[in-house]
Structures are given as structure tokens and as C-alpha cells.
Nucleic acid binder design. Structure first.
Lengths: 205, 205
DNA sequence: ACCTGAACACCGTTCAAGT
DNA sequence: ACCTGAACACCGTTCAAGT
């Protein structure tokens, strides 16, 4: 076969298949991707510049599959909450993707739009100057860190039975690994909000 | 050459060389590691179980190179601050290591000891039951997220010149990328502390 | 116990050749 | 424009063979 009348590959199909592979195994490779689509490895390069672009396309896909509605949000706290929750939900649906995103610069326009909204909301909240970037970094660190937690819910800390009594005790107190992630996220978001609120009161006054 | 009278490889030398490679290039491979030590690739397996163990040993190395002193800390806030700062400093010295740690479960005893201290400090602060794990997760997400930020200080968000005015404006307000990381960390740590403090007041009362 | 070299099963990317 | 197969330069890990 050479050039078919209708293309065998589409970028969308590529991203879908790659995401399936990541969901199933935590990784993907071009040979496996090609096999899943039923196409040769090298033909992928007719649609995409390489592995990195596929990764970035996956980020855009999951972010756009988890939209947020700022119009429905009343006040900066609700708006910030809905952005961070949507980000978390995106990775909650594809937890094994988060570790792969870490080496990659954000280029996807959907994701940049999310950060743009974040900047607007924080300015609306009252942050000014350098504090805006600092606040974005803080929110971002929090959200990324939690997305990564989701990737390894039951193995983040695996202390041996002896030693580490405080850590072992704390883990025993918690709910199941899945619930733990959810509870910790809500807890963390509350901490984050309270912290930002208190910072605003300190500087505005 | 076969078995030399004195071993050509030590685990310490392995970790040192691997860390140098990561610092220089952001990654390491067994062939390159072997070449740097002047030894054959396969002989590495006489000292270490494989690539994963080397990664875990690197984590232990940098954590132990950035100690914290809890005795000097007065109160839970100072103690928490010194743990989180030491964690951050460890990765600040080897920023390109952080992304590689992300796929890996924590097994190193030095690092588990750090989490054990974290659990103790949070209990000392007044957190109880499930909240202890949630608080650890929150602190951990924050610290990990910032460590990752350090790995790509000037390229985290690279918005094109047009569009994204709020994001672009915020980035322009900030200091240089390096200072930005530092300022954002201090800002974030303050937010984190304030949030935890406010949560304690809400539950204790 | 500790090293070597060869071998194996993987990678990502390029490129000439086909239609 | 879009596909194929071969080729290249890499990986991590195993294993028989040496001392």
C-alpha cells in the first residue's frame, strides 16, 4: 500500500489511541501506537512532529474534556475553585497521564487559556504586581502536585511496618486510598483559599 | 580484565556520577553512566538492581545533603517551615532531578524519615485523624509542585505574544525567572501556613 | 565477588521508494 | 499528500565466560 484515497490516520485518532495506552499501561510508545491504529510506525510522522507533540495534544484533549464555567461562578473564590477543580478532574480521569506531562512545557492553547483565566481571577481577587505570578505558581504547584498524587494513590508513601509510627498511624486513620485523594484535595483547596484570603486581608489593609 | 582486586565501582560513585549526568543534561542512561565511571554497562548490575534503584538512591542522597534541624525550631510553624524549606533546597540544588522522581514510589529511608517528621509536626500543631494525612498530602503537593517549577523556571508558561494579556502582563511584572521561583516559594509557604492556621482555629473551636 | 562482551527486546526518528 | 520498510542510533537487562 502507498497513499490511500482516504487517510488511515487522523490526529484525533492518534491522540485517542495514545490516551488509551496511557490509561491502560501508564505509558505509550510509537510502535505500540502504530500497532493499535493498524498502521506503520513511520507514517505517524506524516501527521505529527513526534512523541512530544502527541504528549502536548493529550494535555489539550483532557483539559478540553473537563470544562469549567466562570459565568456560573459568583466571586473570585467560586471562580478559582471551579478552575482548580476542573484541572483536578481532568487528571482524575487520566491519572497516569500526569507524570508524563511533567517534563513538558505548556504550549497547548486550551491550557494557556486556563492560566489566562487564572490570572484574571487572581487580579479580580485583588492581587497585584509580582503577587499575581506568585499566586499562579502556588495554585499551579498545588494542582499539579495533587494530579500526581492521583497517579499513585496507594503507593505514595509505603513505610515498612516498623519505624515511622506517626506516618503509619496517620495512614491507618485515613479512608481508602481513593477517598483519601478526594478528601485531601478538598482539604487542600480549603487551605489554599483560606491562605489566599488571609494574604489579601494583610496586604489590602 | 575480570574481577579486580579492589572493586572498580561503588554505589556511592554510581550515585555521584548519575547525579552529575542529571545535573548536566536532565537525564542519565546506563551506557553513559558506565562510560563516565570507565566501566562496562553490565557490571553496574553487580552493585545495584537497575535504573530504578539508582533513581531512588539519588533521592536519598539529595535529601540527606539538605538536612533540617527540628530542635532549633520553635513551635510547629517553624518546624514545618524548616522541613519544607529543606525539601525545596534539596531540589533547588538539583532541579533537573525532580521530574525523574515523579514516577517513582518513595522507599528511601531518609525520605520516609522526613515524612515521619512531617506527621509528628502536624500532630503537634493539632491536626487529628484523617486530617493528618490530608495535611501531609497538601504540604507534599505544594513542595513537589514547587520542586518541579524549579526544573523549568523560564518555560513553565510560554504564551505567544498575542492573546493571554492577563498572563503575559503578570509574567512581565515578575522578577527574573530565578527570583520568581524564590519569591513564589516564600509566597506559597506563607499561604500554606496561613491556611493551616485558619483551619486549626476553625476545628479546634 | 566482580568484571567483560555479546545478545535480546525494546525505543524515537529519518529517509528513499512507492502511488 | 500519505503510506511502507529498512536503517540508525539509542535504550535497560540478562547471561555465559573469565578470574
Amino acid at each position: 500500500m502507498a497513499r490511500p484515497r482516504v487517510p488511515l490516520i487522523s490526529v484525533d485518532a492518534l491522540v485517542t489511541a495514545a490516551l488509551e495506552l496511557v490509561d491502560e499501561s501508564g505509558d505509550f510508545s510509537l510502535p505500540k501506537l502504530a500497532k493499535r491504529i493498524g498502521v506503520s510506525q513511520s507514517s505517524i510522522y506524516n501527521h505529527v512532529s513526534g512523541r512530544e507533540e502527541i504528549l502536548e495534544l493529550m494535555r489539550g484533549r483532557i483539559i478540553s474534556e473537563s470544562p469549567y464555567d466562570l459565568d456560573a461562578a459568583d466571586g473570585w473564590e467560586a471562580a478559582l475553585g471551579s478552575i482548580v477543580r476542573s484541572y483536578r478532574d481532568a487528571f482524575a480521569r487520566h491519572p497516569r497521564l500526569a507524570p508524563l506531562m511533567v517534563l513538558q512545557t505548556v504550549q497547548d492553547s486550551q491550557v494557556l487559556a486556563l492560566y489566562e483565566d487564572l490570572a484574571k481571577v487572581l487580579e479580580q481577587a485583588g492581587f497585584r504586581g509580582k503577587d499575581v505570578v506568585s499566586a499562579i505558581s502556588t495554585v499551579d504547584s498545588f494542582a499539579l502536585g495533587f494530579a500526581l498524587d492521583l497517579a499513585a494513590p496507594d503507593v505514595v508513601w509505603a513505610p515498612p511496618a516498623d519505624g515511622y509510627p506517626a506516618l503509619t498511624g496517620a495512614l491507618a486513620q485515613g479512608a481508602s486510598p481513593e477517598d483519601r485523594g478526594g478528601a485531601a484535595f478538598d482539604f487542600g483547596l480549603e487551605i489554599l483559599m483560606a491562605g489566599l484570603r488571609s494574604r489579601l486581608q494583610a496586604t489590602v489593609r
